[in-house]
Design a protein around this nucleic acid. Structure first.
Length: 305
DNA sequence: AAGTGAAGCAACCGCGTTCTG
DNA sequence: GCAGAACGCGGTTGCTTCACT
């Protein structure tokens, strides 16, 4: 049940773009801006599909693109974000209409890089890098981990977590959001972010119930830098802990909260209300502090179920 | 120098969701 | 409310370049 083609295929060029085509597209967008990709080719005098124009502009012609090799820092960030977000397209998960997906979200955290570029880089470089480290690039588990079966996707879903807005059916919008498995029937449950005093160790900071779950978690030492926090916000280490949900075939979620109400959507770089409706982002003032304030989230992977 | 396979990457494709008339 | 258009995404293809024999 496909869709009708977006353009007349018999009258469009395909394949590599010529310099002249590039110049036409650049000049047109400089004059008229982006938008209405369907009508752009005709208006710009290009015998190209609108989708093709959009792809060419976004991936190669945009003036803010950074070309060249990826840095080690970029490598690490991509790996970490992929561990958290995966690469699955989870369109329409956000009530505001924004789409969540792996590559595009990762690209949003790497200025000047495109999702296509990151995707290619992942497939050609990082996969190999992870294999050489003995890590499965899909599950981010050790290759010799017999429990990380690729055939039981429903049980290994960390890289298919999507973020959705807080449930509209309750009023629990206190800076919360949900992480939901992208796999049907996945039995992952997300517990809350447990705030810790920076001087205390993790075991003393969690309740007995949390300690129980803590013992079942594997620390992958996956850390993602948070935007700096302002002075009015205590610097806390927050742990996102994923626990297994036992004996329940239903996919289930719990709301994640932080002690200071920082929305993880924000921590991932979204502006206030851009993707979630929690109204708990710290706002513009968050940009004013130093790297010394930088906090880190540490993510844990659940044991297999 | 020529042939061949691997690697890299630009571009295409199909599909899900949102938008619009 | 509905249908088709538009957009944006991940997956995949296929061309080009590179390395090796």
């Amino acid at each position: 049940m496909g869709r009708s083609p977006c353009c007349e295929k018999e009258h469009t060029n395909k394949g590599a773009w010529t310099k002249e085509e590039d110049e036409r597209l650049i000049n047109y967008i400089k004059l008229h801006g982006e938008g209405c990709w369907r009508s752009l080719p005709k208006a710009a005098g290009l015998l190209r599909c609108g989708k093709s124009c959009r792809l060419r502009w976004i991936n190669y012609l945009r003036p803010d693109l950074k070309r060249g090799n990826f840095t080690e820092q970029e490598d690490d960030l991509i790996i970490n974000l992929h561990t958290l977000l995966g690469n699955k397209y989870v369109s329409g998960s956000i009530s505001s209409g924004a789409n969540f997906s792996g590559w595009s979200l990762i690209a949003a955290k790497l200025p000047g890089r495109t999702d296509n570029e990151i995707k290619n880089y992942w497939n050609t470089h990082i996969k190999r890098k992870l294999y050489s480290r003995g890590v499965d690039p899909q599950t981010h588990r050790p290759l010799n981990d017999s429990t990380a079966s690729t055939t039981s996707n429903k049980n290994t879903i960390i890289n298919n977590i999507s973020i959705i807005n807080s449930s509209s059916n309750n009023n629990n919008n206190n800076g919360s959001f949900q992480l939901v498995s992208g796999y049907k029937n996945a039995k992952i449950n997300v517990t809350k972010l447990v705030s810790e005093d920076s001087n205390s160790n993790s075991s003393s900071a969690v309740s007995s119930e949390e300690t129980y779950h803590h013992q079942q978690l594997i620390n992958l030492d996956l850390s993602i830098g948070l935007p700096s926090l302002t002075s009015h916000t205590q610097v806390n280490t927050n742990k996102l802990k994923l626990e297994q949900l036992q004996g329940d075939e239903q996919q289930e979620t719990k709301v994640i909260t932080t002690s200071h109400g920082l929305c993880l959507c924000y921590s991932l770089g979204f502006q206030s209300n851009q993707v979630c409706c929690c109204n708990k982002t710290i706002g513009n003032s968050i940009n004013t502090t130093t790297a010394a304030d930088t906090n880190m989230y540490r993510f844990y992977r659940p044991m297999d179920i």
